[in-house]
Nucleic acid binder design. Structure first.
Length: 484
DNA sequence: TGAAATGTTGGGGCG
DNA sequence: ACGCCCCAACATTTC
């Protein structure tokens, strides 16, 4: 619907993406710094643009609730959230123009703000959007909001990207960090409630037939407010024992902040600041707080890698692994060879996905993933090691399964960490580091309570002989090295 | 952010 | 008392 043109009226449109929050949101903060200008929020579901990876099922569930929470937070600021679906490069300029028309605002009075994304396809889309907006006479401006530092900033002495984490971390700590911004304090100058856009339910982000999301809903509440509640728990109860507790899947010892960071309910800058403050406020928790800061830096490290190599989810960072002889898919050098799995490897992969490998810790982890959309970090390493090393299945298969099932599935961290486990990544775990799921269970789930919680039935026959498959993996690794 | 194989050491049982 | 053996405990090397 069209309104009376408002003389000299202008609009600031904030394009939300992986930053579903109102505090420390540089683009939103900038928009609402103009007290006389109305702000409109826009979210675009883009499942079509090439180079942008469609969301997995668990991520779609989180997005639905995350957007509802964001809409609530924005409503308190008097800011409406407009939802649109389509290929963003074309759709965003169109949607922006339509919002302006509805408000009776001329193109020269439109500003569009967003926090930058760093995936290859996302960068291409954002560049095209900016170009179109500028051509149409609008203003467009992007901000740094989803990482600690822009991925091109941390550099080695000779100006190259880091491939080893520890020097990356040292360099990162020497870079001045921007201070976290508060939520905008001003309300929109006038209320807008009836802008046209999609209905969230129409996007069908929630699973229906069947609805498998009950376990996710029991484990998580998406949104900025619950994320802050968890951050406070981490500061009070988790950080102090983090260094021991982080390795214990049977305890609540990790931060569990990964989904909040993935969806931007919290920014890494906010968490970094909170942990930095904790190191001085609570000397007993200082070491744990620093370990959490190191984890945040690892997240930035992964995004640096993705920025350097946009096809991180399909291509080995270390090319010598291109000749590795995986049991499936065969011919790993050819990334397009993704035919239906056949034979034993296919059965192995299916039992791994279902949590029916016969190794209690692995099966508990895979069931935790399926039920709650999340898996404890140490168990991620153990399950990944079994798939890649003992079953000899390409890391990409596991990466894709995690992408579909994790609520925190992150376009950079997921492939970077799979490559790390597989030994083909940056600063990777040496290939011959092969976890023994029985020993890992003994060390890190000593009473077996994690296993009991997620895989209460006694495990069946192991799908693979640990000793034998370990030798075979080392042999395959030796053959790869001999090929060089 | 391993695990297994191999090497070393030292205490205790025993002839 | 002494040497020998066994083996747990720890250290080092290897993959």
């Amino acid at each position: 619907m069209k309104r009376d043109p408002a003389v000299n009226a202008s609009v600031n449109i904030v394009w939300f993406r992986d930053d579903l929050r109102v505090a420390d949101h540089p683009a939103l903060f900038r928009a609402m710094a103009d007290p006389a200008t109305i702000t409109v929020a826009l979210y675009v579901l883009d499942e079509e643009s090439s180079g942008i990876r469609p969301l997995g099922g668990a991520a779609r569930w989180w997005l639905h609730h995350g957007l509802e929470a964001l809409r609530g937070s924005l409503a308190e600021l008097g800011v409406p959230l407009v939802l649109r679906r389509g290929p963003a490069a074309a759709l965003v300029p169109t949607a922006v123009a339509e919002i302006a028309t509805e408000l009776g605002i001329e193109p020269a009075k439109i500003s569009v703000f967003w926090n930058r994304r760093y995936g290859g396809g996302e960068r291409a889309v954002d560049a095209r959007v900016k170009e179109s907006l500028l051509e149409a006479g609008a203003h467009a401006e992007s901000f740094s909001g989803v990482l600690l530092h822009e991925p091109w900033i941390p550099q080695t002495q000779d100006g190259r990207p880091f491939r080893v984490f520890t020097p990356f971390f040292n360099a990162l700590q020497r870079i001045e960090l921007r201070p976290a911004l508060p939520a905008p304090s001003a309300r929109n100058p006038r209320d807008l409630t009836d802008l046209s856009g999609d209905e969230l339910t129409g996007w069908e982000l929630l699973p229906s037939t069947p609805d498998w999301s009950a376990g996710l809903a029991a484990a998580w509440t998406p949104g900025e407010e619950p994320a802050w509640a968890r951050l406070h728990d981490v500061l009070e109860d988790i950080a102090g024992g983090y260094e021991q507790g982080r390795d214990r899947p049977d305890l609540d010892g990790t931060s569990r902040l990964s989904p909040a960071l993935r969806w931007g309910h919290l920014s890494p800058v906010q968490v970094w600041e909170a942990m930095g403050a904790l190191t001085t406020r609570r000397p007993d928790a200082a070491q744990g707080a620093r370990a959490i800061m190191r984890q945040l830096a690892w997240r930035d490290f992964c995004w640096n890698l993705l920025y350097q190599q946009p096809d991180l989810s399909t291509r080995n960072l270390r090319p010598e692994f291109d000749s590795f002889d995986w049991s499936w898919p065969r011919g790993s050098a050819n990334a397009s060879d993704d035919g239906d799995p056949q034979g034993l490897a296919a059965e192995h992969f299916a039992s791994w996905c279902r949590g029916e490998t016969g190794f209690a810790l692995v099966d508990a982890g895979m069931k935790q993933l399926w039920e709650t959309g999340w898996m404890h970090n140490r168990v991620r390493m153990v399950t990944a090691s079994l798939l890649v090393k003992n079953l000899g299945i390409h890391w990409r298969m596991g990466e894709q399964w995690f992408w579909d099932t994790l609520v925190d599935a992150d376009a950079a961290a997921n492939p970077a960490n799979w490559q790390w486990v597989a030994g083909c990544g940056a600063d990777a775990s040496p290939y011959f580091r092969i976890f023994n799921p029985l020993l890992q269970a003994k060390k890190f789930d000593p009473q077996g309570s994690y296993v009991t919680r997620f895989a209460p039935l006694s495990p069946g026959e192991p799908v693979v002989d640990l000793k034998e498959s370990r030798v075979a993996a080392l042999d395959a690794y030796a053959r790869m090295k001999a090929h060089l």
